[in-house]
């Protein structure tokens, strides 16, 4: 587990910054809710008149006047985008950074098999994502309790679970990409995360593009669906899991045979 420890230490700064940023933004939003609640009629009117813009963010089907409706939209954008960006940067760089920073020669001339390196790095990514989600979840529950609202446990749990799965899926895909890269990984990871996010917006606006929801992990994170169905879409989650696991498998196949420069 030497490498897991090493990776966690190397990723510490990035982890702390992203976790603190996402967590505190979410908490700030929750603290804004009591004020929003007072003006809810005018806000709902405003959203109703924005047409496909509110559809894009699922605001046409959620009641902004309830905590979970408000939280779902805010959470969707902050935790969704922020989390996706963090994990894609983290996972897409985890293998390629060794060659980019020219530390690969150091690492790979130690008697540690490539399979072991891949596994330990994957575990390190997994631990960082899981830890970030636990911290953020705790912050959210804490801030909802602090404003004196009743905590909607089931919906809250499902929304956070959905985003956790989204992050794991994206991380898996980026890990696969990382095995092929030699430099410049962060841009690619960010681009992929942003693309997935916008694919979901498009799917929300245009019915003909609805199939896109099955491609992007943001499809099963749609809070409006989660709240109204009381669960995640099993098909979408399964597709995501298959994508992620295949990508990780490809990473193993590629990296164990890769020429390191």
């Amino acid at each position: 587990m030497t490498l897991v420890k090493h990776e966690l230490r190397q990723g510490k700064a990035s982890f702390l910054i992203w976790t603190a940023s996402i967590g505190s933004l979410l908490a700030v939003c929750v603290f804004l809710f009591p004020e929003m609640k007072g003006q809810i009629d005018s806000i709902n009117d405003a959203f109703a008149s924005m047409g496909s813009f509110s559809a894009a963010f699922g605001m046409d089907r959620l009641n902004f006047g309830t905590l979970i409706g408000f939280y779902a939209v805010e959470c969707g954008n902050i935790l969704g985008l922020g989390g996706a960006f963090y994990v894609s940067i983290c996972a897409s760089g985890i293998l390629s950074k060794e060659e980019k920073d020219k530390t690969a020669e150091f690492l790979l001339t130690h008697p540690v098999s490539r399979t072991r390196i891949l596994t330990e790095k994957l575990i390190a990514v997994f631990i960082q994502i899981t830890a970030m989600n636990i911290v953020i979840y705790a912050l959210c529950v804490g801030s909802i309790a602090a404003i004196g609202e009743k905590i909607p446990w089931k919906e809250l749990d499902l929304i956070h679970l959905a985003y956790y799965l989204l992050q794991l899926e994206l991380a898996g895909i980026c890990f696969g990409i990382s095995a092929f890269l030699r430099r410049g990984s962060a841009g690619l990871g960010l681009g992929l995360a942003a693309m997935m996010y916008f694919l979901n917006l498009i799917a929300n606006i245009a019915d003909v593009a609805g199939f896109l929801k099955y491609i992007t992990p943001f499809g099963y994170c749609e809070a409006a669906d989660i709240v109204s169905n009381g669960g995640l879409d099993g098909v979408m989650v399964t597709i995501g899991a298959v994508l992620s696991i295949s990508s990780i498998t490809i990473a193993y196949l590629k990296y164990t045979k890769k020429d390191i420069h």
Partner: peptide, 21 residues
């Protein structure tokens, strides 16, 4: 048998670079 070989080899690369920080 790469692992077995590497455990008894010391390698000095021409360009010595290490992890930041």
């Amino acid at each position: 048998e790469k692992g077995a070989i590497l455990s008894d080899v010391g390698y000095l690369p021409s360009e010595a670079l290490f992890y930041h920080g």
